[in-house]
Nucleic acid binder design. Structure first.
Lengths: 203, 203
DNA sequence: TGCAACCGAATGAACGTTCAGTTAAACAGC
DNA sequence: GCTGTTTAACTGAACGTTCATTCGGTTGCA
């Protein structure tokens, strides 16, 4: 019956959200399962109904967050230029992080933790099927500098995260327009430069 | 006596290095004090002779690593242009991370952990007295885009870290020359653009 | 004789995980 | 419509382990 089905989803997402919220303040190992349970209004044992272990919970949470992030990206409607799509991508990602502070801090911690290093195979499907190809296309079609994708991504992602954190720390209040202007600066940095006398080396 | 004095330093740095090495693979809370002690060929109690607690050890380690990083930067000899100084800074930092993989991964984890957030006052003196002013000078003198320092730093730092990781993961073998070429790309991205028709907004 | 460096077994608290038991939805048989 | 049965969701006290920290004792230099 749907009442029960809803309650299943409800408890599971409550666990996710509770974990997300606590990890931001206490880190992975600083947040006990008991605390997650209490914060989610759930018994400790219930978590183990949905997740095999704490590790499994963290891994599932990563996919949950990454999927939410990728869903925030609008689908390509073919009306925009590549540059405009990039600006849109950048602004949307940044706005998502500003609106979902916990997700930002969780992802930052996950990406630099041994979890990531020892589970490189875990990745959001939406991320792999939409975001990776988008940037590869930009490089292949000569709109973005011929950097390797794996060097380009961290630089772009870094600028998004830095801007979102800057806003969240209260240093500056970014409006949508300001975000677009910032995205333009980044675009200027990564776009294929036609004015440069000597072409830069292909990495 | 200096033998003993040496052994003091020796044990203390052995603890630092052991912690650095283990944290890379297991994370902060994944490395017990007993493991740190064993790896450093030291008794568990000895760690508490030098550090009040595990937390204090991590904080001291942060300063230790950050000082080592800042020391890798050559002093300004006034013979180089600002651009050349930037390139040198970028390359030296990147080369340091490549040579000190453990330091890279530790700093990444520390910066994204609650340690950083709850102890923002802890910072290397060398970092504050040399690196911060260097970039402020670049912005003030109009050589770097008029971004806020706190937005500029993460972007530059992000590119350095991304490149070092790229090398360490075996994707590409960076020579000193290749690093300089990559630094040039970054410089092109952050330098004050004279060709742009409309000046970009000051953030 | 004093003192700092050092040791490592012992301690006690914290934590991940388990499990015996409870609740309530779903459904079959009548 | 009622009753009995099954099953998934859920509970929280209890367990066993791990770990940070302590402390009484040892070493060796001054």
């Amino acid at each position: 019956m749907n009442v029960q089905l809803n309650s299943i989803t409800c408890k599971k997402t409550a666990i996710f959200d509770s974990t997300l919220c606590l990890i931001k303040e206490h880190g992975f190992h600083g947040t006990p399962m008991s605390m997650i349970a209490k914060n989610a209004n759930v018994a400790a044992g219930t978590i183990y109904h949905y997740f095999e272990s704490k590790d499994a919970l963290i891994k599932a949470l990563y996919i949950y967050v990454k999927d939410g992030l990728a869903d925030a990206i609008p689908s390509d409607d073919n009306l925009l230029s590549y540059k405009e799509l990039f600006i849109q991508y950048w602004v949307d990602q940044c706005a998502y992080f500003i609106a979902h502070e916990n997700a930002l801090y969780f992802l930052e911690q996950y990406n630099t933790s041994p979890y990531r290093i020892s589970n490189p195979e875990i990745e959001s499907k939406v991320f792999l099927t939409r975001i990776v190809p988008f940037f590869q296309k930009g490089i292949d079609s000569g709109q973005i500098r011929k950097m390797d994708y794996q060097l380009l991504m961290p630089v772009i992602h870094g600028s998004i995260v830095a801007t979102a954190k800057y806003h969240l720390l209260g240093h500056y209040d970014f409006t949508k327009e300001r975000l677009q202007e910032t995205a333009l600066i980044i675009w200027d940095g990564i776009k294929m430069q036609q004015s440069t006398i000597t072409t830069h080396p292909i990495i």
